[in-house]
Write a protein that binds this DNA or RNA. Structure first.
Lengths: 333, 333
DNA sequence: CATTAGCACTCGGTAGACTCGACTGCTATC
DNA sequence: GATAGCAGTCGAGTCTACCGAGTGCTAATG
């Protein structure tokens, strides 16, 4: 653990560096509020902080820059109790006041809100519908060869899947299958949808079977939906095009993004700094996440991704307040 | 119009520049196939081409670079009848052979395919469902206060909208409204969905009215879905971060992207070069587009976006073949 | 008369030398 | 223990010289 003075110096370095993106020297730190010693003393202490791995010198005659360990200490121990600025506050309020429409749209817009607030890339993972039950199932033929099975879930989400009709099935079989499925699947939990009893009528049963298969396969195949916004901010965060490219490439792989967020949440973290993300291309990025809830149950995750030298207090505050409001909104809606 | 020799020289410049991204000098051109004159002659001709606006010299002692007009001439008159390479050919074939599942997924994957083929950013605009008719409508309550209206269309797409139930409506009203709507809306064209006759039962009619409103509002509010892929390639296409940032910012605005593609198509173009896109942030980009069809009707658009010095023949070939295959696939599926 | 060889010229890019200044670490002092 | 002062380091910026790719022009050529 660091003594109080070292901590104050570390904090000053981190805050200054976050703001300017330039290595910060001892004299800057000495004149920072909370540090009431001379630059010489600061130099001594900074040398100590460097030896302990909290700071790093890009070159011999430059100022110091925080290491991952330095950021980590800052986030864990020095984070000032930040709230959002008034302008942002009202932006959030306004957003959730006028937010309406389907969940999907709201999540997409939430992602936009987050990147506007933080000037970072934002990520919103849609809720997993594990707990929902089936409210309605219907099979509708859309041509002589194909049909759609549509399920409405208790959380208001709708799933659909197209499948090929068995050759012998006509409209009447589709309709009886539809009724049959409605009878047997309504009220069943989404993750327990499985085979239904046979009716004895071969074509009808064939249709039913395919419809159920479609629902089940969709469940396992489909990755969680994820909304990424503000990727343009990434191009400003780094000055190496290669870094930008790598990060964008990661963000395009929805599956990777989802499991990244899930992983961080599962480790009980709200911030993953640099290599803590576990993804080499993101070693110069940090991720700030927060889960959101529906009816008190963890539903999905929101987060922002930016350079390691991002403004953690602001990002944490933004993510926290948005996840909170989003939870409320989704719970009541 | 350009005489044959000038055209050959312009072609050589464009092709060389596309490949190397470096200004090309007279000696390079002189040794290019199809140009059998000395570098001195080439110099004379290039001076002419520059005077006519087809070429441009970045600085006095550098080679020449094509202007927009130069690219335009190349695309219109010099484009070699390119086909995709074998590797790409089989990649496309393989993709469409194993492509399956919902249209949405397929479009998303098509976007990925396109950017893999071209190493450019790709854009896929989903079909507009204007011509579709309603195959089925259903209203399902998901809580005591809210219900979902779900419509299955003849093209296999499904639309849903959540709405608040009128206070006096109970499950029985929802069910009768559901049946009522099914009776009156099935077979109606999507864009002609409107009010249905009253039943005389007030709560039922209230539910019906809100459900119809929801469907109608959704139709007008929702912009066309668009899938953007390969944004990471943008970071390689330019060496100015600012340019990358601007382009990414444009790509995040789905509405803008959709209308951009539509606009280019409507002008009868398959390539928009630089400022021809009509969007200042894209003045260093070119866009190659092709419409795709379902049952012989124009349905949506695919395209790729890259730097003006992109490989037009390759991009045109890729976009053409993918739109063709996609049309087939969507028509039969 | 179109083409070409040759030549003088231009100018961007690179490498080296130099300076400047923002740092540091160390030491002597309070 | 804290600080003032000082010598030392090294990146960044500036300047110069130079190289070379590429041009435009002119004179020679078939």
């Amino acid at each position: 653990m660091l003594d109080e003075r070292k901590a104050a110096i570390l904090r000053a370095v981190v805050e200054e560096y976050i703001e300017t993106a330039q290595p910060v020297g001892s004299s800057h730190v000495a004149s920072a509020p909370g540090v009431d010693v001379s630059s010489a003393t600061v130099r001594n202490e900074m040398a100590g902080l460097e030896a302990e791995g909290y700071l790093r010198q890009p070159h011999t005659s430059a100022g110091r820059v925080p290491t991952e360990k330095g950021y980590r200490f800052f986030v864990d121990n020095l984070r000032p109790p930040t709230t959002l600025g008034d302008r942002s506050q009202s932006q959030v309020r306004e957003f959730f006041d006028k937010a309406h429409g389907e969940v999907e749209e709201m999540l997409a817009q939430t992602s936009r809100l987050l990147s506007n607030l933080t000037k970072l890339t934002s990520v919103v993972v849609a809720p997993e519908p594990a707990e929902a039950t089936v409210r309605s199932v219907q099979v509708v033929s859309i041509s002589t060869t194909h049909a759609v099975v549509v399920a409405v879930l208790s959380d208001g989400s709708v799933e659909k899947h197209t499948f090929e009709l068995p050759g012998e099935a006509g409209d009447e079989h589709v309709n009886t299958a539809s009724a049959h499925l409605a009878r047997h699947l309504t009220g069943v939990r989404r993750d327990q949808v499985g085979n239904v009893p046979q009716t004895g009528n071969a074509p009808t049963d064939a249709v039913s079977r395919r419809a159920v298969e479609a629902l089940v396969s969709r469940r396992t195949a489909e990755p969680d939906q994820v909304y990424v916004g503000g990727t343009a901010h990434m191009a400003q965060a780094f000055d190496a095009l290669e870094t930008v490219r790598e990060v964008l490439a990661v963000l395009e792989q929805q599956y990777v993004v989802v499991s990244l967020l899930r992983d961080v949440i599962n480790r009980g973290l709200d911030v993953a700094i640099g290599t803590e993300t576990g993804m080499p291309p993101l070693s110069e990025c940090s991720l700030v996440v927060a889960p959101y809830e529906i009816d008190g149950e963890r539903a999905g995750t929101i987060g922002v991704l930016g350079p390691t030298r991002m403004n953690y207090p602001q990002a944490l505050a933004a993510v926290a307040v948005v996840s909170d409001r989003l939870s409320n909104r989704l719970t009541e809606g």
